[in-house]
Amino acid sequence: MNIAVLSGKGGTGKTTVSTNLSLALNANYVDCDVEEPNGFLFLKPNIDNVYEVEEEYPVINKEKCVGCGMCVKVCNFNALAKVKDDILVFDKLCHSCGACQYVCKFGAIEYKKRVIGRIESGSAFGINIKQGILNKGEPMAVPVIKKMLSSINRNELNVIDCPPGTSCNVVNSLKYSDFAVLVTEPSNFGLHDLKLAIELVKMFNIPFGVVINKDNGEENIIKKYCINNNIRILGTIPFNKKTAELYSKGEILYFDRDHKNIFDELVNNIREVLPWS
């Protein structure tokens, strides 16, 4: 069972919700925000396993290559170029689609692997923790996300900390999800971005609910919107100095007496929608 935690924009508290929810659920925490994985900063796990994520890229066998340039022509990603009779490969732009190899009549293209990121796993506070890290300067996060999500056991309970926004990175995280928790904050910007996130989860037909961060307990536009549109509010996280202080110190809210019940309640609410054993 995979629970995806996402938010339309950055800075809404997605990581706060996912890390604490993992602890409250006693579930595995999986950080898919591979460009800026922050969950480990709070959970501080012991890492006992690291493995590299590799992507394939073409290598030109100069003895076999006749410089016809067919490979350059079919590459839709501009990863190949022809200068004089030489074929040059720009591996970072390669999507490993295989088109160049397919069209080469001379068998001059082989694929090699290069490392684009890594996946670290470990444990903290009795839960398993995994994070994907995309190497600096690498433009494509999707292979790391795919690799990580295909490696998790869907029979277990997993909380997936998604990348921000509604880009293809998020789409790829959602493909593996059974339920979505949308984190937002009570402002017009928050509502605008929440609507985008809702559109996205609806496309995938994933059941979902909303968590309102920085909630002052009063009526607000998010609550109004959710009620009018029959959207389940799973919980709220208060906006006060203590919460902010704990956060800035990198401490875990779930271990604080005043905050524990927020996440326990969140768990109960999710259970109502998504029964599991």
Binding site: V74, N76, F77, H95, C97, G98, A99, Y102, V103, C168, V171, K175
Partner: peptide, 13 residues
């Protein structure tokens, strides 16, 4: 279309 990266290999094949 969410998964298609637009490489065009299928059009060739």
């Amino acid at each position: 279309s969410f998964s298609c990266e637009g490489c065009g290999l299928c059009t060739i094949a």
